[in-house]
Nucleic acid binder design. Structure first.
Length: 80
DNA sequence: GTTGAGCGTT
């Protein structure tokens, strides 16, 4: 299970995401995909937590929250 | 600016 985090600021780094999600549990994996053609950040990311309970809490606590001047969109990620 | 690849044998 993993979390989709959308509407991110383009200058957010993996460490920043980890910091925020660590508030809700153990972050086991972070992914911030960049546009393969342009190398630019795509403005969204993926976070995996150690447990689905922690993920649920993170989604609950962070979806719709304002961060880095943008309103976060957080929910369960679709399968790649 | 809203759902991740990548040339290998997980």
């Amino acid at each position: 299970m993993s979390i989709y985090v959308g509407n991110l600021s383009f200058d957010v780094q993996q460490e920043d995401l980890k910091e925020v999600f660590a508030e809700y549990g153990v972050v086991s994996r972070i992914s911030l995909p960049t546009d393969r053609e342009t190398g630019r950040p795509r403005g969204f990311g993926f976070v995996d937590m150690a447990s689905s309970q922690e993920e649920a809490k993170a989604i609950e606590g962070l979806d719709g929250a304002e961060w880095m001047g943008r309103t976060l969109r957080v929910n369960e990620a679709k399968p790649r």
